[in-house]
């Protein structure tokens, strides 16, 4: 990863530079007009968030059962990145909603679910910061429970109410929209991967520094 990091960063930068051009060229959607184009950033940010959520949950389980500190650091990095992409989704969602539903916030199923998962991982970060000694294990439990909670949140909120455009629209996208969409998904996933690596690297360095301090004492 270390060798590939710089080229991949350049690639990601290039992709994000080109993405607006692709999105601008994509056809207008008849009913939504310009606002529909948020979709090219909105949906990929959720993809990235849920990737980070699962990385966080799985690494936390590894940390808990194999007692591997590096897994804990990766989980921490993933938790932060999940919240970051979650915010992107939560900001872009209402922008769309304002046009589509006429209000900023709708208690729509997927939006609510995203908010709840987001809350779980903000909770995760709060525990890490303010939980005191032993909070790494507490946070790991939160991440594992949060990960397993996703389907339950999804089901309960979904039955509760649904007015969101169904996810089934994605496979049916016309090629003119599909290509820029999947291009953006790839760009976001790459960004997610890069941020994750960078953030985890920072944690690894911090741990190494701690070890050096301990050595000194």
């Amino acid at each position: 990863m270390r060798k590939a990091f710089t080229p991949l960063t350049i690639l990601a930068a290039a992709m994000f530079a080109y993405a607006p051009i692709m999105i601008a060229r994509a056809p207008y959607e008849s009913t939504m007009g310009l606002v529909q184009k948020i979709f090219y950033f909105h949906v990929p940010s959720w993809f990235a968030m849920f990737t980070a959520v699962f990385v966080c949950g799985i690494q936390s389980a590894i940390f808990l059962f194999k007692r591997r500190p590096s897994a804990d650091r990766l989980a921490f990095a993933a938790g932060e990145i999940a919240v970051l992409f979650g915010f992107m989704g939560l900001v872009t969602g209402p922008l769309w909603g304002r046009k589509s539903w006429g209000v900023w916030w709708q208690w729509d199923a997927r939006l609510t679910m995203a908010l709840l998962v987001q809350l779980t991982f903000i909770g995760y970060l709060l525990v890490r910061k303010y939980g005191g000694p032993g909070s790494d294990k507490l946070a790991a439990a939160m991440a594992i429970f949060g990960m397993f909670n996703v389907p339950f949140v999804y089901m309960s909120v979904n039955i509760w109410r649904t007015i969101h455009p169904p996810t089934t629209v994605i496979p049916k996208l016309p090629a003119a929209m599909g290509v820029p969409f999947w291009f953006c998904v790839a760009a976001f996933m790459l960004l997610c991967l890069l941020l994750l690596t960078m953030r985890a690297q920072l944690e690894h360095r911090r741990a190494a520094l701690d070890a050096l301090y301990l050595e000194q004492e």
Binding site: L116, L119, G123, L126, V127, G146
Partner: peptide
């Protein structure tokens, strides 16, 4: 944990 009073609802309600 020292901060258990506040942490319990923070952890419990989202889940």
């Amino acid at each position: 944990s020292r901060t258990r009073d506040i942490m319990l609802p923070i952890l419990l309600y989202p889940i």
